[in-house]
Computed example of a mutant assay.
Amino acid sequence: MTLTMNNKPSRVATPISRDTMQDRVHRRLCDMILDGEIEPGQLVTIQSLAETFGVSHMPVREALKRLLAAKALTVVSGRSIGIPRLNRSALEDLRKVRLEIESLAAVWACRNIEPVELNSLRRECQRLETANAAEDVHSYLRANRAFHFSLYKGARSEVLLSVIETLWLQISPYFSLLHGEGNYSSANMQHSMMVRALEQKDEAGVERAIRADIDAAYHLLMKLVD
């Protein structure tokens, strides 16, 4: 294939694949953080991660730089890296932005979501109920992430989804602390309300449920931080 510029043919270069080892390591680390596999207070090192992923230090180091810049991880001491401490100011800031961004995504999803996606959300609701009943925190966190991001994908906006993931990389590691506060049961009620609102194309209803879910977690975490 060629393009013509100034009447002279110019061959288009073959696209370079972006799916590099660094990208794959970065994606895996994001998944670990979002799914609660790296918890507050837990330390990891480049060496331990490289051994876990079966890769050299370089892609791990580069992926960690991206997550440090995104404030998803921080250097704790020496070569040890962990989840940043969450203070009241950061928590309040995250709450305000999440309320606006995630409720917007939910409203857009209400307009665009397909029946097959609603079925997926119903299944995730069941997984959440099962995990909560079994007091299986890790399974709950994975299902919670799957539920919310399935909903937000319904907004049909990659930009919104990327922004929300950045916010969740900073806040979601602390969702594990909410188990002992009874939040998972109340959150499941909000999840069911979201599904019903989506079924009825009730934009105000899904926005209220998302905001209530975010606020409930925020008020509990405010008691736990600092």
Rank of each mutant, 00 (worst) to 15 (best):
M1T: 08
M1L: 10
T4Y: 15
P9A: 09
P9R: 10
T20L: 01
Q22E: 14
D23Q: 12
V25D: 01
H26P: 03
H26Y: 05
R28P: 04
M32I: 02
M32L: 05
L34A: 02
E39F: 02
T52V: 04
F53E: 07
F53C: 06
F53I: 06
V55Y: 04
H57Y: 12
A69Q: 09
L73P: 02
V75P: 05
V76C: 11
P84H: 10
L86Y: 07
L86Q: 06
N87I: 02
S89E: 15
L91A: 08
V97M: 06
L99K: 02
C110I: 07
E117Q: 15
N119F: 06
S120L: 15
L121C: 03
L121R: 01
R122K: 14
R123E: 05
E124L: 07
R127G: 02
L128S: 01
L128C: 08
V137Y: 02
S139F: 02
L141F: 05
A143E: 12
H148S: 14
Y152V: 02
A155I: 03
A155N: 00
E158T: 05
L160R: 01
L161N: 11
V163Q: 09
Q170S: 03
G180Q: 00
G182S: 13
Y184D: 00
Y184G: 01
Y184E: 02
S185H: 10
S186P: 06
Q190Y: 12
H191Q: 12
M194Q: 07
E199G: 01
E199Y: 00
E199V: 01
Q200I: 06
K201Y: 05
R208P: 05
R211L: 06
D215H: 12
H219F: 10
K223C: 09
K223Y: 05
